[in-house]
Computed example of a mutant assay.
Amino acid sequence: MLSLPPPPAGLGRRARNASVALGAAAVLLGTASPAGHAQDGGGDGGDGGGGDLEQTVAPEEDNIAGEAVLNVGHVDIGPRFVDGEWHIHGRDDSQSPPVWRPLTDVVTQVVDASQQQAPEDPDFGFLDAEPGSDLFVIPQTQAPEVIWLGWNTQDPEVMERVNRGVTLTMHGVEGPGHFAVFLQNGDLGAPDVLWDGDEEGPQELWVDLNTHTHANWVFTEPGVYVVDFEVSADLITGEHVSARAPLRFAVGEETDVREAFDAGGGGPAAEEEEPAQESSATGPPAEGPEGGDTEGGDTASDEEDASLNVVLIAVGAVALALLAAVVVVTARSRRARRIAAATDAADTGTGPGRSAS
């Protein structure tokens, strides 16, 4: 049964593929939870993992490397400049002060306490779930026992260097069930689907600078899910920057988080994301003679094989020509000997059909 709180005051605006920031009120799939809503802009204080979405991101917040399983508290996905380069990080404020973690180092665990029942409302048909069936939900409003996952564009250097806003793109998702992210206003409006795992192709979402937003992340089955995620923007200098990384989830407490870390390529020690300014798709490197990797090894080997084939064909053609010449010369030599023998016989009168006198 869908239960919705009254719409909060000062509700922010949101837009998909537009120049308006995201904002929405809470959606409750089943039981009640603390009131709260996504809103635009940052406030004067950090939210400390609570329901208040007003926060300020300090420029001195640390970047922390190393595996981390995040299953409680408040985490925002967002772009951040690290040593002048554009990256996707997760801002984890389960500790104080908050820290930023590379997305490649993180698995978001969705605990069993997140389970709710799929509503009967046909507006929720995009969830691909039978009404009353169990769903795993990271809610738009904070629940004390469940990770509270959102996104922000509040890194100080991002706000200083980016032109207007950023684009969040889901390129696809792998997992045992259906995945969707949506917002819902508190005025009984229909859910606003931001990302749907059934849709093909990139799904883009525009987010203004200095925005902090939370939404509903829904999984229909337990297991490992990997979202192919990208954050891109145009800088005030005219330069385009982008970074792409796997967003990994271990849904259900029986799901092995190690399996989630190993899914989707890369890993904690892998190079994070694509290059900030440009990227190129390449196949796996070939193994060199010493067992090392050599770029372009397959291409060089193919060229050598092709050259060898050309040489063998040329040698064969020459050999055939020589053989043909030998045959012709031999035939002519035999014919010449026959003609010479016939001439000698004619001179002596002992040719065929004649007898010596």
Rank of each mutant, 00 (worst) to 15 (best):
R101W: 02
L312F: 11
T237E: 08
S307Y: 11
V315N: 05
P5W: 14
G45F: 12
G265R: 06
D256W: 09
S333E: 09
E274G: 10
V158F: 08
H178M: 03
T31L: 11
W151M: 10
E290N: 14
G30I: 00
S280Q: 13
E221L: 09
G51F: 11
F261S: 03
R14L: 15
V57T: 14
V181E: 08
D47I: 03
V69W: 05
T141A: 15
G297H: 11
G197C: 01
W86N: 02
Q109G: 05
G353C: 00
E200N: 12
A314C: 01
P97E: 05
S232D: 10
L149V: 14
A129L: 02
L168E: 10
E230D: 06
D92P: 07
E130F: 01
I339E: 12
D256P: 09
E54N: 13
S355L: 06
A341F: 08
V328E: 01
P102F: 07
R14E: 13
G283A: 09
G189F: 06
G223N: 04
E200T: 14
L323V: 08
V110H: 00
W148R: 05
G23D: 04
F126V: 00
M1F: 12
A65K: 12
Q140N: 11
V181K: 02
N63E: 13
G172H: 05
H214F: 03
A233H: 05
V327I: 07
I138V: 15
A129R: 00
H87T: 13
A321V: 02
D62Q: 15
G90H: 08
L103H: 04
L247M: 14
G73F: 03
A342T: 05
P5G: 15
G42C: 12
D128K: 07
A269R: 11
D347M: 03
F229E: 01
S3A: 13
Y225Q: 06
F249A: 04
Q39C: 10
A345F: 00
A260Q: 04
S280Y: 14
D208G: 15
T167P: 07
E272M: 12
G73P: 01
F124S: 06
G175T: 01
V99Y: 04
P275L: 07
R258V: 13
V162N: 06
G78P: 00
T294H: 10
A281C: 03
D256H: 09
D187V: 07
E303N: 09
F126N: 03
I88V: 15
A270R: 04
A21D: 14
P98H: 01
P285T: 03
